[in-house]
C-alpha cells in the first residue's frame, strides 16, 4: 500500500490497466494473486484444525483484497491518500482468527 501511495500512476497501471492487456500480463497478475493467497493461506497454521478452512478461502480473500484495491484505485482513494489497509487486514484475518481479532485490526493506526 505504501508503494501504491508513493506512485499512484504505477499503481493504476499494475492493478487496473493490466486487465485490458494481453494474457501474458494477466498471467503475471494471477501469479501475484496466487502469491497473496499463499500468504493468506498461512493463516491455517494458526488453527487447531487447519483442514477446517479450505485453500479456497485464501483465494477468495486474495480476490477480495485485489477487488477492493482495484475499486479504490479507480475511485481515486490512492491519490487522496485515504487509508484502507485496516479493512483489508480485517478480511484477511477474519476466517482464521475470528471476529474479535479481525475487529482489533480495525484499530491499528494507518501507516503514515
Amino acid at each position: 500500500m505504501r508503494f501504491f501511495e508513493e506512485d499512484p500512476a504505477r499503481a493504476r497501471f499494475l492493478v487496473v490497466e493490466v486487465n485490458g492487456t494481453g494474457s501474458g500480463a494477466q498471467s503475471r497478475r494471477d501469479r501475484t494473486l496466487q502469491g497473496l493467497a499463499d500468504i493468506v493461506d498461512g493463516g491455517r497454521e494458526e488453527l487447531e484444525k487447519p483442514e477446517s478452512v479450505s485453500r479456497c478461502t485464501a483465494e477468495i480473500v486474495a480476490g477480495a483484497i485485489y477487488g477492493t484495491v482495484l475499486g479504490r484505485i479507480e475511485s481515486g482513494y490512492i491519490e487522496r491518500r485515504e487509508d484502507f489497509l485496516a479493512e483489508l487486514v480485517y478480511i484477511a484475518v477474519l476466517p482464521y482468527l475470528g471476529s474479535r481479532a479481525a475487529e482489533d485490526e480495525l484499530l491499528v493506526q494507518p501507516l503514515r
Partner: peptide, 13 residues
C-alpha cells in the same frame, strides 16, 4: 466497505 470487499472477492474468484 465490508460488503464491497466481500463482493470483490466473490467476483475475483
Amino acid at each position: 466497505a465490508t460488503e464491497e470487499t466481500l463482493v470483490g472477492g466473490i467476483v475475483s474468484l
